[in-house]
C-alpha cells in the first residue's frame, strides 16, 4: 500500500484521485511511525522548494525518510526535495541524490515556467515499463534538476537537457506530474506501485 507524505506542501487531491482511478490503495503519513504502515512512499509537492523543505523538516520526517529502504517516489517539488540544494530560496534539501536544483535560464529564449507536455527519453528503468520513448508528460515548474548521467533515468529538453526523472537506490523522483499526464502518467504510478526493493 502507498503512503503519501502529508506535510502541507500543495494540494494532493489530483494525486489521490489518480490512485483511486487506478484502484491503488493509499494512506497518509503524518509521523515517523506511519512510515512502517506502507510498502511504497510518495512525496508530493507543489510550490516553493525552500518552503516545502522547511515544512517537511517541521514534521520530523527527514531523517526517517532518508533511512528508508522501500521504494520512494518524489513528484515535482517532492523530487527536488531529494536533491542536495535548490536555488529556489537558496535552500538545502534532503541530500539523498547528489545533484542540484536550479532555475531555468530565460536568457536561453525559453519561457518560464516550463509548462505543458514535453517528451522524455528514458533509460528502460522499471519505472517506465510499458512507456514508449518520446512519450509526453505534463510538466509545470520553473526550477529543474541538473542532468547527471549517474542518476538520470529520463531526460527532457528545455533550453538544455535536464533530468525528467532520477533514481538513486530505492529513491525515485519525477519532475513531471504523473497524475496529470494522461495514460502514460497512470502507467508510471502503477509501475511505481509494483517496484520491489
Amino acid at each position: 500500500m502507498i503512503g503519501i507524505v502529508n506535510y502541507g506542501a500543495g494540494n494532493i487531491f489530483s494525486l489521490t484521485s489518480a490512485l483511486d482511478r487506478l484502484d491503488l490503495p493509499y494512506g497518509m503519513i503524518n509521523e515517523e511511525a506511519d512510515l512502517d504502515k506502507y510498502t511504497h512512499i510518495i512525496i508530493p509537492g507543489v510550490g516553493h522548494a525552500g518552503t516545502a523543505m522547511k515544512k517537511l523538516d517541521q514534521t520530523g520526517l527527514v531523517a526517517p525518510i532518508k533511512a528508508l529502504k522501500k521504494p520512494v517516489l518524489g513528484i515535482c517539488v517532492g523530487m527536488q526535495l531529494l536533491t542536495q540544494h535548490s536555488e529556489e530560496g537558496d535552500a538545502d534539501m534532503m541530500s539523498i541524490v547528489p545533484v542540484k536544483t536550479r532555475l531555468f535560464n530565460k536568457d536561453q529564449g525559453i519561457k518560464i515556467p516550463h509548462m505543458g507536455w514535453n517528451n522524455i527519453t528514458h533509460k528502460n528503468n522499471p519505472l517506465f515499463e510499458g512507456v514508449k520513448n518520446l512519450t509526453q508528460f505534463y510538466f509545470v515548474h520553473s526550477y529543474f534538476i541538473e542532468y547527471n548521467p549517474t542518476f538520470d533515468i529520463a531526460t527532457a529538453e528545455y533550453g538544455m537537457p535536464f533530468s525528467a526523472a532520477v533514481q538513486k537506490d530505492n529513491f525515485y523522483g519525477v519532475q513531471f506530474h504523473p497524475e496529470k499526464s494522461g495514460a502514460a502518467g497512470e502507467r508510471l504510478l502503477k509501475n511505481f506501485s509494483n517496484l520491489k526493493h
Binding site: D20, S181, E186
Partner: peptide, 28 residues
C-alpha cells in the same frame, strides 16, 4: 472533474479573492 480527469484543467470566472482560489485549488 478532478476525480475523473487525467489532464490538467483551469477554472475561471468569479474568482475575486485568495480564499476563492484556494477552495478551487483544494478541489483539484
Amino acid at each position: 472533474v478532478a476525480r475523473q480527469l487525467n489532464i490538467p484543467f483551469t477554472i475561471g470566472g468569479g474568482i475575486t479573492s485568495v480564499a476563492d482560489a484556494e477552495a478551487l485549488l483544494n478541489s483539484g
